[in-house]
Design a protein around this nucleic acid. Structure first.
Lengths: 220, 220
DNA sequence: AAAAAAGTAAGTGTAAACCCTTATATTGAA
DNA sequence: TTCAATATAAGGGTTTACACTTACTTTTTT
């Protein structure tokens, strides 16, 4: 087992960020070399500290501004060997898949014990990824094989136009209003709605709104 | 300032719970006497340890099972002098009001720095409540004056019937389907929908779904 | 105890949402 | 580069949702 693991922590919640730092202080083989509250700060830190060795990044996923997905995608593009573990409150398959697509090597929940997090860090250093019930080996392997990192911003199977329409539906706009905003005919908006219902497996706009929240097309 | 503050921590996210414990270890005037992951455990701990002095409880609000609101309501009923501070990721006025209604003495966000949390704990011990931008003195005073704790489960201004209908709308049920489920006429369900739209300030069911999420009438 | 307010129930009418089909443009894969 | 798949665009027809109104009942306030 690697004796001195260099770790970077990213979490917008200071409580979590500072608490984690303290927790790792009790584990001498893991050294927190940097901690940040947002994606922008980590990206610039990595730019300014290219020489510094970093083994693992613990990346919060839900953050305002540049979120954990986007940050992970940018970082893995620049540093393909960087092992980034996602940290989230949500046990949501769409979130996990999206994170792995962005180049993540594992996914942890905040409900999990610190010992599991330590395990994940050690495993990701040794094997390159962290496998558990939520993230089976097959899934990781699938993403590694495909050499993904492409189209990651398209978090859903919806087109950009459809995503815009979903967001406007969530703002309680009618098809006519959406048509006026996007310079389309009301009928075109309605045919997009049809496709959206089909793709999101919804029966009506209630389902669309819930889908938008689960896939973070809107924030609450 | 009180020299030795006895603190209880409640948070389902082990990372936060254990991290906070470590953070408080560095502040000798605050002693963590108990920590729990859920409402049930705290309630039983208080029952079994009636003699033990507890000054402040830091209570996570979003927890599975018995949440922070319910737990706070039950605890303040049994121990009216207990100072419970709410801890949440969400800066949501409906959440704050509901928490104060349940007997909470302050509301903190997880993004806030540990120093602010320490301040809150000290202030709540000295003054009995914690005031900040989100929770102005007037609001706290309002709840203290009214000697609230009543009807707290009615988190919104919706009636039970209307809440049921909202939940069914979120399950993509039509008015006819809701009528069949609740043994009402379709027309009655529709008149409830009207009232719901009015009360929730919504234009259509998209607004109702978002309201339901923000007021935790459904979980995502 | 009376008055006011709000819940429950239900009707009519209109507008919007949803369902299905067709046509063209664009993109992606063989 | 041609074929296939999908996005975009838009139509008709049906169902559902929403707006407004009335009536009776229950709850709350004075």
């Amino acid at each position: 087992m690697k004796s001195n693991i260099k770790l970077v922590i990213v979490d917008d919640q200071m409580l979590v960020q500072q608490g984690m730092k303290k927790l790792f202080d009790a584990h001498s083989h893991i050294e927190v070399v940097y901690q940040a509250s947002n994606g922008i700060d980590v990206i610039s830190w990595f730019k300014e500290n290219k020489g510094i060795q970093v083994d693992v990044v613990l990346m919060d996923i839900q953050m305002p501004g540049m979120d954990g997905w986007e940050t992970t995608e940018l970082l893995t593009r620049k540093f393909p060997n960087l092992k980034i573990i996602g940290l989230s409150s949500y046990d949501n398959e769409a979130f996990i898949d999206r994170f792995l697509k962005c180049g993540g090597r594992g996914y942890l929940l905040k409900v999990q014990d610190i010992t599991e997090i330590i395990d994940a860090i050690e495993q990701v250093v040794e094997l390159g990824f962290y496998v558990n019930e939520r993230v089976p080996l097959s899934k990781i392997q699938g993403f590694i094989d495909k050499k993904v990192i492409q189209n990651t911003f398209n978090t859903t199977d919806l087109t950009n136009q459809q995503i815009k329409i979903v967001q406007l539906i969530c703002q309680e706009k009618t098809s006519q209003e959406i048509a006026d905003i996007l310079f389309l005919s009301k009928k075109t908006v309605e045919s997009h709605r049809d496709k959206i219902l089909l793709k999101t497996n919804s029966k009506n706009m209630a389902g669309i709104v819930l889908y938008a929240i689960k896939h973070q097309l809107i924030s609450i």
